[in-house]
Design a protein around this nucleic acid. Structure first.
Length: 229
DNA sequence: GCGACAG
DNA sequence: ATCTTGTCGC
């Protein structure tokens, strides 16, 4: 028998918001928070999607990097049309299908998936990073550029400082300073990783810029491919 | 009821 | 997300 494929077969998209929320409720209990040592991570995949200004085309990119050297090992892209509108809280239904498409074209199996968005820092505790992580059943984390839910005190000005992101009494993530004096990023657990592990890994992946290198690479690649269409 | 709301 | 140049600061 063949091994379980890295990427599961895509089902039909939800017919509407109600159906999408039901899907989230069904999958959310599957999220696991496991300790993960950032220093034991070998390969990471950065994920991002770029949208065409005029028409409804989009490009999803997955770029695999060596977590130690931050060198690109491999990358893949997928061109698609969004199968779901943008609705805050249902973001994953828009981006997960094309991202799975791109991930399915990789020949390596990354240890951790780094998503442009949130995981548990979500109104129903099931953001993009949780959704993708659960479908793949692989470790995943989310990095957002602005807070989505909850609030956090400004972390210290030095790189590495962080403060808890709290929503409804839950710690759902961290505001993390990746560069001295620069606006923090917001880190949250996606799946099979804990908040300490996610924080440590993001710091390791962002030695010189605000955003982790895997996300920067995926962002650049998806833009470049879209420009060439 | 009103405003806010990842990308 | 996307439409967009130069400019200030390290």
């Amino acid at each position: 028998m063949p091994a379980r494929p890295l990427v599961p077969a895509a089902g039909p998209p939800p017919a509407g918001a109600e159906e999408a929320r039901a899907e989230q409720a069904r999958l959310a209990p599957l999220v696991r928070t496991d300790p993960l040592d950032p220093d034991r991570v070998g390969l990471v995949a950065g994920l991002d999607v770029t949208y065409a200004p005029g028409d409804d085309r989009l490009v999803a990119a997955a770029v695999v990097l060596d977590a130690g050297t931050l060198e690109v090992v491999e990358s893949a892209t997928a061109v698609a049309r969004p199968a779901f509108p943008y609705v805050p809280g249902l973001f994953a239904f828009r981006e997960v299908p094309p991202l799975l498409d791109a991930i399915g074209r990789l020949r390596t199996a990354p240890d951790v998936f780094v998503c442009d968005g949130f995981g548990l820092a979500h109104p129903r505790r099931f953001g993009l990073a949780c959704h993708l992580g659960v479908l793949l059943d692989r470790p995943a984390l989310g990095v957002g550029k602005s807070p989505f839910v909850g609030s956090a005190e400004p972390p210290g000005e030095r790189r590495g400082s962080w403060s808890p992101l709290v929503d409804g009494g839950d710690v759902v993530g961290r505001a993390l300073r990746t560069r001295d004096g620069v606006k923090p990023v917001y880190v949250s657990v996606g799946h099979r990783i804990d908040l300490d592990g996610a924080t440590g890994l993001v710091l390791r992946l962002a030695p010189s810029y605000r955003l982790p290198e895997p996300i920067r690479r995926a962002d650049r690649l998806s833009r470049d491919v879209l420009r060439g269409l």
